[in-house]
Design a protein around this nucleic acid. Structure first.
Length: 477
RNA sequence: UCCUUCUUAGCUCAGCUGGUUAGAGCACGUGACUGUUAAUCACGGGGUCCCUGGUUCGAGCCCAGGAGAAGGAGCCA
């Protein structure tokens, strides 16, 4: 007889059938009731140990965290908290867990504490739910693109281009750091390094993605990305996962449509496939909100927020319109913003984005057509000479979740812009070839995967939605 | 990197205006009970009050420096 997973067991009709389950003990109540979890679902299976079944020594080894195998018959539960339960005929301790030393207790722990024991936090209800949802979202991303005929492209992790313009990079080298070779001028001699040049971890797969889009039409990447920014916030990681689709023959509107469809699709997938986990996290958030004063509590709970997001179109406004809204807002007039909005051309601060999303529109917002001076070199220039075809999707509680644009496909305009922004044109000659040979209208965006997981799980710190977070001064596990 | 706050038992926290032997709940151990739902009841063990220095008759509490953490800002996804 083989092992049945708890999720399957909980869906069975109890007919006194004989079943074997294996998992980890969450609690052992009354020397009689084991709450057994095997990670297949957030719910536990109650295993009943009848009096006299086990000797005292074995009984004592059923502790929180221990791995056990239980064989018994499945019956309709005699208690109230669950529909079925397993009456054990035999129990084997597979792995002991010293109750005095095991850090997880059947009680509420702080997220900060659990972050310090990230190797064990998977075994809690909250992180179980979070990482099952993370899996579902990743799967849904692949499913969405596959069904649309996109090619999943693996862009390199190690790159030589320092010109992607997306922040500080981590250098990759196999130099002996105590004895770095120098050239005649006293500069580091990268010719002697492994790749014969200066290399770093990728900050974005976009430029390589564009190359493939010029052959397959529609591609996407989904991989890790590295930024050496000294950012200490609840929304930034030094190592994070990003989804970057790139589509030929797409303009900015097509790009926005795709991004919105993707977000609706994957959130809906989680709603349909992770109902129990989302219900648990919704409940968890409600408990947490009870601690807050009335006016700080959110109007919608997590489940309602996700449903609202799936069932409503995102608001689309241009940067220029957004500035006008902010300028005219009571918030601005009453000087409630730390940074007052008074002129066109400035970048929006977090507080402004939050105002638009959480106060003014009260739904996800897509901002388009930003001033060219605050955006990257590859974005397509508008005829007005001052804005570019950029789009950012802003989510409540998260801020920017997607950043994208229609790309500048006109070689001359692109080269001029690169020179203006001091981007080394020669180094990116391979990139410019897409504009030299068969250039066409195209667009793409980057979706921060952890920010998506944040939104769907209702967690508030990005370090709690990636298994082992890498942040400044922290690279544990 | 900047600003603010925090650091007391394994965990979550209390500790009054600087005053005697630093407390609670949970966890853990022992015992009781045995259809429990983070079981309950009784008893018990458990402390470098983050570190270093200073002020004081006396510091968990005040001052200075350092370390770590959290939240916010900037950068961005």
């Amino acid at each position: 007889m083989s092992r049945v997973k708890v999720k399957a067991v909980l869906g069975l009709k109890p007919e006194s059938q004989e079943i074997t389950v294996k998992g980890w003990v969450r609690t052992f109540r009354n020397n009689q009731f084991i709450a057994l979890n095997d990670g297949s679902t957030n719910n536990n299976l109650q295993v009943v140990v009848e009096l006299g079944l086990l000797d005292e020594t074995t009984l004592k080894r059923i502790t929180t965290g221990a791995a056990i195998s239980a064989k018994g018959t499945l019956i309709a539960s005699l208690g109230k908290g669950q529909s079925v339960e397993l009456v054990a005929k035999s129990i084997e301790i597979l792995g002991d867990s010293d109750a005095e030393k095991y850090p997880l207790q059947p009680k509420k722990h702080s997220l900060e504490f659990l972050r310090e024991i990230a190797h064990l936090r998977f075994r809690t209800n909250t992180f179980g739910a979070v990482f099952r949802i993370r899996h579902s979202l990743a799967y849904a991303v692949h499913k969405f693109f596959h069904e649309k005929g996109f090619v999943y492209l693996h862009t390199p992790i190690i790159t030589a281009s320092d010109a992607e313009g997306a922040g500080e990079t981590f250098a990759v080298t196999n130099f002996d750091l105590n004895n770095i070779p120098k050239n005649d001028k006293g500069e580091i001699d990268f010719k002697q390094d492994f790749f014969g040049k200066h290399t770093n971890l990728t900050v974005s797969g976009q430029l390589e993605g564009e190359l493939a889009a010029m052959a397959f039409g529609d591609i996407y990447t989904f991989g890790p990305t590295f930024r050496a920014e000294n950012s200490n916030t609840t929304r930034h990681l030094a190592e994070f996962w990003m989804i970057e689709p790139e589509m030929a023959f797409y303009d900015l509107n097509d790009n926005m449509d795709l991004a919105e469809e993707l977000l609706h699709y994957v959130i809906n997938y989680a709603l349909e496939n992770n109902k129990e986990d989302i219900d648990f996290l919704t409940q968890r958030l409600l408990e947490e909100e009870k601690q807050k004063p009335q006016n700080e509590r959110s109007e919608m709970n997590l489940l309602e927020k996700l449903q609202f997001c799936v069932n409503n179109k995102f608001e689309r406004v241009t940067y220029t319109e957004a500035i006008a809204i902010l300028k005219d807002s009571n918030h601005n007039k009453k000087k409630k913003f730390q940074y007052l909005v008074n002129e066109w051309g400035v970048d929006l601060q977090s507080e402004h984005e939050r105002y638009l999303v959480e106060k003014h529109f009260n739904k996800p917002v897509i901002l388009t057509d930003y001033p060219k001076n605050i955006k990257a070199f590859y974005m397509r220039q508008n005829d007005d000479g001052k804005t570019v075809r950029a789009m950012d999707i802003l989510f409540p509680g998260i801020g920017e979740i997607v950043g994208g644009s229609q790309r500048e496909e006109r070689l001359e305009k692109l080269e001029t812009r690169m020179k203006e922004m001091n981007i080394p044109v020669e180094e990116l000659s391979w990139y410019l070839d897409t504009r030299r040979f068969g250039a066409c209208e195209h667009a793409g965006f980057g979706l921060g995967f952890e920010r998506l997981v944040l939104f769907v799980t209702g967690m508030t710190n990005i370090r709690d939605v990636i298994p082992f977070p890498r942040t400044p001064n922290n690279c544990e596990f």
